[in-house]
Amino acid sequence: MSASAENQSIRHTPVEDLLALVAGCIFMALSVAFYRHAGLLTGGTTGLAFIFHYVSDWSLGVILFLVNLPFYVFSWLAMGPVFTLKTFGAVLGFSVMTEYMPVFLRLEYMDTFYAAIAAGFLAGTGILIFIRHGASLGGIGVMALYLQKKRGWRAGIIQMGCDALILVAGVAVVPFQALLLSILSALALNLVIAMNHRQGRYFGF
């Protein structure tokens, strides 16, 4: 079987892509619920949204949506319209689910160490689902995927470096212990991506 025929045989259907984006949004919204409950931060544009949320009265869901808007132009030019539209849908769904998650889930107690690890793994899995169905959560993730596609650089490593810078900026809004746990969570998140999203492995189409 030729490479093109093989790729065609595993191409995701629109229904599969839709279900995957919904699943990814649920994973991500759950991770954000854990982060918020434990008073932690995360990386990427979600981390930036958390910082703005902690220092303002703005809704986290609204900030999540707005902070990604500037990246759609880059996404359209670098990754194409299909990727960009899927990413827009993922960010919109994630933002809405994050905003209304307290309606469906109320947490009374969660150990902060467990919250950091679980949130990192949940977020990493959610992002991996998006990647494998030709989408992302915008922002830094778009640039990381572009550099992996064009230069072969590992998306997880790129994301980890950017996350570290964002988390360092978070020292002004969260206690030092929470910052350390946030760094641990970021490592867990990026470990999932680095181990499971490599050149030559399953990408999805």
Rank of each mutant, 00 (worst) to 15 (best):
F71A: 05
V73P: 08
F74Y: 13
S75P: 02
S75Q: 07
M79Q: 15
M79S: 14
G80K: 09
P81I: 06
V82P: 00
F83D: 11
T84C: 09
T84Q: 04
L85E: 06
L85Y: 14
L85C: 11
K86F: 11
K86L: 08
T87Y: 08
T87Q: 09
G89T: 13
G89W: 08
A90T: 13
A90I: 02
A90Y: 01
V91Y: 04
V91F: 10
L92D: 08
L92F: 15
G93N: 13
F94L: 14
V96P: 00
V96D: 05
T98E: 03
Y100D: 06
P102S: 14
V103R: 14
F104N: 05
R106E: 15
R106H: 15
L107I: 15
L107G: 03
E108S: 15
Y109A: 14
M110G: 11
F113N: 07
F113A: 13
F113Y: 13
A115Q: 05
A115C: 09
I117N: 08
I117T: 13
I117W: 12
A119W: 02
G120P: 11
F121P: 01
F121D: 01
A123P: 01
A123R: 01
L128Q: 05
I129E: 04
I129W: 08
F130H: 13
F130S: 08
I131W: 12
I131F: 15
I131K: 02
R132H: 15
G134M: 04
S136M: 05
S136Y: 04
L137H: 10
G139E: 01
G139Q: 01
M143C: 00
A144T: 02
L145F: 07
Y146C: 03
Y146N: 04
L147G: 01
Q148V: 02
K149Y: 10
K150R: 15
K150D: 10
R151M: 11
R151A: 10
G152S: 07
W153E: 02
G156K: 02
G156P: 09
I157F: 09
I157E: 06
I157L: 10
I158H: 10
Q159V: 02
G161T: 02
G161L: 09
G161S: 03
C162W: 07
D163N: 15
D163F: 08
A164Y: 11
A164C: 12
L165I: 15
I166L: 10
I166S: 06
L167Y: 00
A169K: 05
A172D: 05
V173Q: 10
P175E: 12
F176N: 00
F176D: 00
